[in-house]
């Protein structure tokens, strides 16, 4: 059973055992508009919670994707590097950015659950 958490910067993190998959939320991709470029970190890079994990750019602007949790990058999504529009098509699924091996699972407790994030997004609109 995987568990999904959210940040107020509109990243999501889904945890399966000690592997955290990170992406941007559907709300985020909608706000960005058409994604035209994605820059991903090197596999093996150590990220602390709050570090810049990736960059996502629309026609108009560049945005940083911050890692919600700490860990070592074990995989990156080459598909969205080749076809950035994949982020718009399936932000919460196939449009994931990086996978980390979690170093401190307790960091997840500071993040929002699905209901809290939905409420947060509603408050922005």
């Amino acid at each position: 059973m995987s568990d999904i958490r959210f940040t107020d910067q509109h990243e999501w993190v889904r945890v399966d055992a000690d592997i955290a998959t990170i992406g941007i939320t559907d709300y985020a991709q909608e706000q960005l508009g058409d994604v035209v470029f994605v820059e991903l970190p090197e596999v093996g890079k150590e990220l602390a919670a709050g570090d810049e994990a990736a960059v996502v750019e629309s026609v108009k602007a560049a945005s940083e994707v911050y890692s919600p949790v700490s860990g070592e990058v074990v995989d990156v999504n080459g598909e969205i590097e080749a076809t950035p529009a994949g982020v718009n098509e399936d932000a919460m699924g196939d449009g994931w950015f990086v996978k980390l091996r979690l170093t401190d699972p307790s960091e997840l407790d500071k993040l929002m659950d699905e209901a809290a994030y939905a409420e947060f997004v509603a408050s922005l609109e």
Binding site: G33, D34, V36, S58, V59, K60
Partner: peptide, 12 residues
């Protein structure tokens, strides 16, 4: 208007 529902890429 910065964009319509079609989006910047499609509009361009």
């Amino acid at each position: 208007p910065v964009q319509y529902p079609a989006g910047v890429l499609t509009e361009h």
